[in-house]
Amino acid sequence: MNEGKVLAQLLAQAEGARGDLATLSAIVEEAGELGAMRALARLGLGDDNAPGDVAELRELLSAWRDAKRSAWKALVGWLVRLASVLILAGLAVKLGFWDWIK
């Protein structure tokens, strides 16, 4: 917890300096970084393997999106084909195609 020590030192400095702008800015920056590190650690992304894990998750999400997009395209394609077949069958019945066959 080295970040916690730095934040404590900055807070002590701010009390002595009556909170000048540079010290307050440093406190905010350190507090934000400490909070981000804690959040990443709670998510299990605080170790050295985290960048690889995030890259794998992004690849998996991209593959999922591609598969979902392909599935929708295939479904729409089949629906268009089915509608075309139904329209052609309706036209064949309407135009008396069955009489031509007999």
Rank of each mutant, 00 (worst) to 15 (best):
M1V: 12
M1H: 07
N2G: 07
G4Y: 11
L7S: 05
L7R: 01
L10P: 01
L11G: 06
L11I: 12
A12S: 08
Q13G: 05
G16S: 15
A17W: 04
L21E: 15
L21T: 13
A22L: 08
A22E: 13
T23F: 07
I27Q: 10
V28M: 11
E29W: 04
A31F: 10
A31M: 08
E33P: 14
L34T: 01
G35C: 13
L40D: 03
R42S: 05
L43P: 03
D47N: 02
D47E: 03
D48G: 05
D48Q: 03
N49M: 06
A50W: 02
V54D: 09
V54Q: 09
A55Y: 03
A55C: 10
E56A: 09
E59T: 11
R65L: 12
D66Y: 06
A67T: 08
R69S: 13
A74H: 03
L75N: 13
L75S: 14
V76Y: 09
G77I: 02
W78Y: 14
L79V: 12
V80S: 09
S84Y: 09
S84I: 10
A89F: 00
A92S: 08
A92Q: 07
K94V: 14
K94Y: 11
W98F: 15
D99S: 14
I101S: 09
I101K: 05
K102W: 10
